[in-house]
Nucleic acid binder design. Sequence first.
DNA 1: GTCTGAACTTAGCAATATGTGG
DNA 2: CCACATATTGCTAAGTTCAGAC
Length: 474
Amino acid sequence: MLDHEYTTKDIFRKNFFKDWRKEMTAEEKATITDLKKCNFTEMSEYFKAQSEARKAMSKEEKQKIKEENERLLQKYGYCIMDNHKERIANFRIEPPGLFRGRGDHPKMGMLKRRIRPEDIIINCSKDSKCPEPPPGTKWKEVRHDNKVTWLVSWTENIQGSIKYIMLNPSSRIKGEKDWQKYETARRLKKFSIKFNAFCSSKEEGETADTVGCCSLRVEHINLYPENEGQEYVVEFDFLGKDSIRYYNKVPVEKRVFKNLQLFMENKEPDDDLFDRLNTSILNKHLQELMDGLTAKVFRTYNASITLQQQLKELTTADENIPAKILSYNRANRAVAILCNHQRAPPKTFEKSMQNLQAKIDAKKDQLSDAKRELKSAKADAKVRKDEKTKKAVENKRKAVQRIEEQLMKLEVQATDREENKQIALGTSKLNYLDPRISVAWCKKWGIPVEKIYNKTQREKFAWAIDMADEDYEF
DNA sequence: GTCTGAACTTAGCAATATGTGG
DNA sequence: CCACATATTGCTAAGTTCAGAC
């Protein structure tokens, strides 16, 4: 991790050194007293060399590794549930290492210990052949609980939380749950509520300081009776899940604005904004409004309804397939922005943008050359009037057309990439957008579903690809 | 009511695989 | 066919929800 920014952070270094010293012998402890004086370059070089060696391997060696991975997958990557062979999601146990919390995490750098068979609980049915622990070891427990979906669990040592091995998203059990999620969100359509919130509460000092709706503090909002020509504007600025910043200015109803003013009266910046509300009160209230309604349903609803509406708005009939796909990506992007799904701009972004621009310029030159050739071929044909020159004109015309299409494709690509610089589309696509909306859109416009969903996504959304026709309405 | 823990979903980053143009 | 760019997959942390203890 030597090259990583983590290692420059004080908390990371402090936590690492503290945990490392716990592992030392008395002698080591006496010798190694200052992390600054420790030199890890030799180890770092070793791993770098390993990675280089891996890259430099011959085709045959790479193929061998691939086959070995496939063998492991076949051996450990599947289970039988209700008589069906199902793919397991994370069948490899998490290796030991240094904990990398996100944001300002107080525990970053702590030693994540190796998981041993004695830490492992196996959950399988009574009549099944229970997996054997490695020779000379024992599982912590073997149980037969058919009220839960996990196959294996263990307790990790950083937060003391339980980790699980569960089934792949393509499995029946996950697919049905996913379907159910969207059905609940669809029922929200009947209500004309616009509500964009989520909740959380956490122990201080154990986690990074992030908030959700119920735990927003006074310091996270500013109120503007008037702002940029709009009335009753609330400015949000806080760190949410994964310490991703949420910044937005939202005009609200006067009544909401006045209430927020009241909630902020006589409070310190670090006081709770909603001090009489907690997640259980909120969820109880939501449950009364609609069966199955919880805070996160709004996110699913907002995302899916926005995709549907954006697709309607952005797709035009006479466009070609690449242009339609651009429209799809734009609709997807609108959702990602709504949900605040961000990503760090790729390290190679500027460079790859320049390269693409260079390609576009080259293509433009090529186009004007082709046009010039077409012109002279036409002139030629006018004079000669024979079959051969006529055919030449036709060929040149086709060439121009082809280059124009290529140019357009490149330009579309450039626009798409620029607009996507800091936006992550994957999260919404995978977790919030009812796949039946996308499938219906594909069917309606004759777009192969492979253009929208890759192999993994098609496996996860198999249920939707199967059931949605082109008239599907969310 | 309030707190805690178990179970499950959602999240962004990094490594790896694949595709493409020179 | 190679180098580079892009797409996909893997990884695991960080959320939400709900039930049950107190």
